[in-house]
């Protein structure tokens, strides 16, 4: 049984800090109240007269921006009133388009509608999504969050991806029946667009099987935000690993302290040039922590590779030739991980 107390320093810092933010927030909320009373665009303009039919006049399969595949997606399920096509159709997400007069500073008149853009005319700005969108990422994402704020998206705001100004459309393709990022086989390529280092790591000789489509990034990571430091699915790294490696969970009678604390002290998750995703070879990996008198502290040099009696401490499994139970042992005589 342990005796660990919450450090006083954190309490001293944390609670005044949260109180300060609350104060700032209240002050800001008053400011926002004032903004809320000001007319917004939604009160200034109108939606189209014919809904999606207006858009689809141009956005067919031959256009530069074809959209008809939206009708093969969950978003275009009219009978599901939560979806865009159960509501304001295209304008559910893209918003009511803005007319010329309004952009020049005049308020739109009642009855104003979106019209087909004539040749040579530039499309009036409306909310669009993706890398080339001119709208702020926060504005794009806020639209998606209007419906997708619950469940696994609760932690999106304030998450690493949100802080890095990643738009939903950076990863998700909406007008396609098969969004690649939701496909176990294709998902890694989407993630590799930014996480290039991980792409290279998955070609290393020891790795998890993403290259063959057996796993995907989201089997371990919660891209929409999580409590952990590296967007892991579970609250801690070890819990994430144990979801597939439950046999290593224990708790064991004889624990190996680093294994119980943090798998990543010895393993690297995305790929290694050493077996079993280890960070380095035994015996040097083990000798980073084990210096007991006798064989653990001996310098095992290349001279042990050859000769009349090659070293059992170096070759094959090295330390694990005897200490095979490195994740912990439940044997009464397993104190040294040999049983």
């Amino acid at each position: 049984m342990k005796t660990i107390t919450t450090p006083g320093l954190l309490r001293l810092i944390l609670f005044p800090l949260l109180a300060g933010i609350m104060g700032l927030n209240l002050a800001h909320a008053q400011q926002v109240e004032q903004v809320d009373t000001e007319p917004t665009l939604a009160t200034l303009q109108k939606y189209s007269e014919k809904g999606a039919d207006t858009c689809l006049k141009c956005h067919d399969e031959d256009s530069e921006f074809p959209v008809l595949n939206i009708f093969k997606t969950k978003h275009a399920m009219a009978a599901d009133t939560r979806t865009p096509f159960g509501g304001l159709q295209c304008e559910s997400c893209h918003g009511p388009a803005v007319n010329n007069e309004w952009m020049q500073g005049d308020q739109p008149e009642d009855g104003h509608t979106v019209n087909k853009v004539k040749d040579g005319e530039q499309r009036p700005p409306m909310l669009n999504f993706g890398l080339k969108s001119k709208q702020p990422v926060a504005a794009q994402n806020r639209m998606c969050l209007g419906c997708h704020q619950g469940n696994t998206h609760i932690g999106w705001q304030g998450s690493q991806h949100e802080n890095s100004d990643i738009s939903c459309a950076s990863c998700h393709k909406i007008h396609t029946p098969h969004d690649p990022v939701l496909d176990r086989v294709k998902q890694p390529e989407v993630c590799y667009q930014c996480h290039q280092q991980q792409r290279a790591e998955f070609y290393k000789p020891s790795t998890h099987p993403l290259r063959f489509g057996q796993l995907s990034c989201s089997d371990c990571h919660a891209s929409h935000g999580s409590a952990g430091s590296t967007l892991l699915n579970k609250p801690t790294l070890n819990q994430t690993c144990f979801s597939c490696h439950a046999e290593k969970r224990g708790p064991f009678l004889w624990e190996h302290a680093p294994a119980a604390e943090d798998c990543s002290l010895c393993h690297t998750p995305h790929g290694s040039i050493h077996p079993a995703l280890l960070k380095k070879r035994a015996p040097l990996l083990c000798q980073q922590c084990h210096s007991q008198r006798g064989h653990p502290s001996v310098a095992l040099t290349a001279s042990g590779l050859t000769g009349s009696n090659p070293s059992r401490l170096l070759l094959l499994g090295s330390c694990t030739n005897c200490h095979s139970q490195v994740h912990g042992s439940n044997h009464p005589s397993g104190v040294k991980m040999m049983r």
Binding site: T40, A42, P125, L127, Q135, R142, M143, G146
Partner: peptide
């Protein structure tokens, strides 16, 4: 646009 999208 940010203001536009907020109510939506």
């Amino acid at each position: 646009v940010l203001i536009l999208t907020l109510p939506l």
